[in-house]
């Protein structure tokens, strides 16, 4: 049901974990009704220099988490904000129809982390 790219990102997730003293933290989802994803990132001169994810969810959710961190790493915040959920699914070579909703968290969590970073910087 999952293609090789999805499986690769699930079995060998990139950037899994959590950054100590992150510059931005984004958490989306609700454990009671669905999946949870937390993204932590470090930013230097508007560029994402380090990024980690933690995800409670199915294989599709973990693979999309992994992929979104790859897509965002090294990008400017402006570029990262333009990454959509659809971009993540596309970068994975597509997801099964019934799993498309699982990918919805990934970009949302990334954007939430960037917003958190900006909020901290402009008190």
């Amino acid at each position: 049901m999952y293609n090789e790219t999805v499986k690769d990102h699930f079995y060998h997730p990139r950037n899994a974990g959590e950054l100590e003293d992150a510059d931005g933290i984004g958490e989306v989802g609700d454990i009671n009704c669905g999946d949870i994803m937390r993204i932590t990132l470090r930013v230097e001169r508007d560029i994402i220099t380090a990024i980690r994810f933690k995800t409670f969810g199915c294989a599709a959710a973990i693979a999309t988490s992994s992929m979104v961190t790859e897509l965002a790493n090294g990008k400017t915040l402006q570029q990262a904000l333009r990454i959509s959920n659809a971009d993540v699914a596309a970068a994975l070579g597509g997801l099964p129809e019934e799993k498309l909703s699982c990918s919805n968290l990934a970009a949302d969590a990334l954007h939430a982390a960037i917003r958190d970073y900006r909020a901290r910087r402009s008190p």
Binding site: K7, F10, D35, F56, G57, C58, A59, A61, I62
Partner: peptide, 14 residues
């Protein structure tokens, strides 16, 4: 606790 069933299943499947 803490992990989703399907992801564990696929891990076992491996």
């Amino acid at each position: 606790a803490g992990i989703e069933g399907e992801s564990l299943l696929l891990n076992l499947d491996l």
